[in-house]
Simulated assay, not measured.
Amino acid sequence: MGGAASIKDVARAAGVSVGTVSNVINRPETVGEGTRARVRAAIEQLGYVRDESARQLRSGSSRIIGLLVLDLGNPFFVSLARGAEQAARAAGLGVMVCNSAQQLADEADYLALFAEQRVRGVLLTPADAEGSGAAALRRGGVPFVLVDRLAPGLEACSVSVDDVGGGALAAGHLLESGHRRIAFVGGRHRLQQVADRRR
């Protein structure tokens, strides 16, 4: 037998129907233990791997969530990706992580890729303050949540930090401790988060 094993090959090897193999893969609790073991042994023996692109065509969506961040060199976004991956895995999904490097053109390319892959949804830290990429997702019917950013004029769900409040708490703590000469060290001021913390 040449090439990759098909679901029909697995069914033939296990002596069951294609539907039974599909049930073992997708709804194993609906198949008896002995049959399940036979099918899994055939899958292992043949090296069968599910054709995800065919499944996507049938269902209209993938088992992937897109995560597009501004800077994968930033430990904040690495932690964010790790948390998203853990939550996705618990739901039986995977995460495709991409880095826009704060470039609008890169952001647009990755969002187009997510749409082509029919991702289940997108977690997005937009490269522009207006959230034009998020607006494109909405037009395409792709669910999304903004992460660590708000986009004025774009009504959307978001998970973000109150950077103004955080900066005020930090400065207030220093002032209450008697400090009067306070320095602010941050990144580029064109980033909204940095500007908010400084404010």
Score class of each variant (00 low, 15 high):
Val31Asn: 01
Gly32Phe: 06
Gly34Cys: 08
Gly34His: 08
Gly34Trp: 05
Ala37Gln: 11
Val39Thr: 04
Ala41His: 03
Ala42Ser: 09
Ala42Gln: 01
Ile43Pro: 02
Gln45Cys: 05
Leu46Met: 03
Val49Cys: 11
Arg50Gln: 15
Arg50Ile: 09
Arg50Glu: 10
Asp51Asn: 10
Glu52Cys: 06
Ser53Arg: 12
Ser53Val: 15
Ser53Glu: 08
Arg55Pro: 02
Arg55Tyr: 03
Arg55Val: 14
Gln56Val: 15
Leu57Ala: 07
Leu57Tyr: 04
Leu57Thr: 07
Leu57Asn: 13
Ser59Arg: 13
Ser59Trp: 12
Gly60Gln: 06
Ser61Thr: 15
Ser62Gly: 13
Ser62Ala: 15
Arg63Gly: 14
Ile64Pro: 01
Ile65Lys: 01
Ile65Val: 05
Gly66Glu: 02
Leu67Asp: 07
Leu67Cys: 06
Val69Thr: 11
Val69Leu: 07
Leu70Lys: 02
Leu70Arg: 13
Gly73Ala: 10
Gly73Trp: 10
Gly73Phe: 02
Val78Phe: 01
Val78Asn: 06
Val78Tyr: 04
Ser79Trp: 10
Ser79Arg: 14
Leu80Val: 14
Leu80Ile: 08
Leu80Gln: 08
Leu80Pro: 06
Ala81Val: 02
Ala81Asn: 08
Ala81His: 09
Ala81Cys: 02
Ala81Tyr: 00
Arg82Asn: 14
Arg82Asp: 12
Arg82Trp: 05
Arg82His: 14
Ala84Ile: 11
Glu85Pro: 08
Gln86Trp: 13
Gln86Asp: 15
Ala88Arg: 09
Arg89Lys: 14
Ala90Trp: 08
Ala90Thr: 10
Ala91Pro: 10
Ala91Asn: 12
Gly92Met: 09
Gly92Pro: 12
Gly92Asp: 11
Leu93His: 05
Gly94Ala: 09
Gly94Pro: 06
Gly94Cys: 09
Gly94Glu: 12
Gly94Tyr: 12
